[in-house]
Amino acid sequence: MTDSFQNIAVISFPDISKIEFKTIEKQYLNVILINTAFIFLIVFAILFFIDYKNYLELNESIFWLYAILSIALLFVVFIKLIGFKKRKYAVREKDISYKKGVFFRSLTTVPFNRIQHVEIDQGPISRYFNLVSLSVFTAGDSSDDLKISGLLKEDAQQIKEYISNQIDE
C-alpha cells in the first residue's frame, strides 16, 4: 500500500472523463423555454396588475421594475440556452451518469447495484413533445440523487428496463 499503488493502479480503471456523453433531446429546449416563459408571464402579470391598480404607489419606479425584469428574462434565457448544451448523460455497463451546469458544473454517477428504484414521470408540457424524466433513487437521504429530464419516452423505458435487469441480478 504505497503511494505508487494510488497512481499506477487508479489510471487503469474505467475512466469517467473518457466516455462519450449523449446530449438530451433537442425538443426539451422548447419545454424549458415554455416553462421559463410561463413563470415570467406570471410575474409580469402580477407587476402589471400592481401597476394598473396602483397598489404600492410605485409611479415612476415601475418602469425600472419592468426594465429589471426584462433584463432578468434575457439573462435567464441566455443561461438556459448555454446550460442546455451542458446537460448530458451516459449509461455504462454498471452505472449511469449525468452532468449539467454552466456556473456550477456537476457530474453525478450512480452505480446500478446501489439503485433502490427507478421512476419515469412526465409533465404536461413534456407530454406534448413525448418527453419524460428519468429519476433514480438510492438509499438514505435520496433528495440528491440523479434525474435526467428530456428523454424520449422509448429511450427512458429502455434505460429503466436495463437498470431493473441489472438490479435483479
Binding site: G101, F103, F104, R105, S106, L107, T108, T109
Partner: peptide, 14 residues
C-alpha cells in the same frame, strides 16, 4: 458503502 458520487465545480474552480 458509497451510494453515488458527484464531481462539482464552480466556474472559478474550473
Amino acid at each position: 458503502k458509497v451510494q453515488n458520487v458527484k464531481l462539482k465545480q464552480t466556474m472559478f474552480q474550473a
